[in-house]
Design a protein around this nucleic acid. Sequence first.
DNA 1: TATTGTTATACTCTATAACTATA
DNA 2: TATAGTTATAGAGTATAACAATA
Lengths: 152, 152
Amino acid sequence: MAASVIAPQNTATDDDLSDLIGYNMKRVYSLLQTDLVPLLAGFKLRAVSFSALSVIVNAPGVNQTQLAAALNIERSNLVQIIDELVSLNLIERKPVKGDRRRHALMPTPEGITTFAQAKQAITDQEQAFFAILTAEDHKSLHRILAQLRNRP
Amino acid sequence: MAASVIAPQNTATDDDLSDLIGYNMKRVYSLLQTDLVPLLAGFKLRAVSFSALSVIVNAPGVNQTQLAAALNIERSNLVQIIDELVSLNLIERKPVKGDRRRHALMPTPEGITTFAQAKQAITDQEQAFFAILTAEDHKSLHRILAQLRNRP
DNA sequence: TATTGTTATACTCTATAACTATA
DNA sequence: TATAGTTATAGAGTATAACAATA
C-alpha cells in the first residue's frame, strides 16, 4: 500500500493514560517538583541534599553507608551530596570512635536551624498545593502513600 | 573547638521525611518504576514511548507538536521517541494534507495491538501493586491523583 | 576477606539554542 | 515572520566497577 496523505488531527490528549495510577502520579510528582526545586534553591539545597540533611539531623552520627540505605541511593553518589552539605556548613564529617574507616555525620547548629526552616517551608508549600483537596482526601492521600511506601 | 570523636549511631531512618507527601510519592513512584521498566522492556518500550504510543493510538494523525504538548515533553526530545516507535513498526510518519511541515503520526495495526497488550499488562501489574490497599483506598488514590493532575 | 568511603565513568533523562523547510 | 521538525549539546540524576584505607 502506498503512503497516503492524512487529514490533520486537531485534538490530542493523554486521557487514556489517566486510567493508570502510575501515569497520574508521575504528572502530579512533576508539578510538586516544579514548586519544590526553587523553594529549596533558596536554601542552596536540592531535594536529595535536603533529604540527607533530614536524616543526619534526626540521627546525628550516622555514617554514609547507613545514610545511603535510609535514602535508597548509592554510596558513591552520596559523596558529592555530603560535600555539598559540608561546604554549606550544615554538617561535619567527624571521626568515629573505634572505626577509622567511618565518618560520623553531625549537623552543625546552622544545619539544624536550616533544616527546620526548609522543612517548614516545604510543609507550607504542600499545604497550599493540596488545598484543592478536601481535608479528608488530603489525609487519605498521605496515609495511602505512606502505606504503599512501607509495604513489606 | 577541636574536632571531637563521635560514638557511632546505630539507627538511621527517613521517618521525619514521611511527614511530606512529596517524599512519600517519590518513594512510591520509584517502586512503581522498578516494576514498570522491565515490563515495558518486554515490548521494547520505555515509559515515555508507551505514553507517546497511547496518544497516537487514541488520536491518529496527531502531529509532533500536539503530542509533545499532551505529554508535557519537549518537541526536540520527542524526535528520538518517534524514531523508536517507527523503527519498531508501531507507528508511521505520514504527510499531512495541506501542510508539508507537519507529520501525521499514525499507528500501524501492530502498534494498535501492541499498545493494547502493553496497557493491559500495566493495568494488571498496577492491580497487583495496589492490592495491599482496600478497594476504597485504591479508588480514592486514583481519583485524588487525577484531580491534582488536572488542577486549573 | 569484608567494609567504608571514594573516584571514575557511563548511561538516561531533560532543557536550551539554533538550524531547515515550510507556511 | 512564525511554525514544525530536527540537530547538537549541556546539565542533571543515577548506576556500576574498581580502588585505598581500615577492619
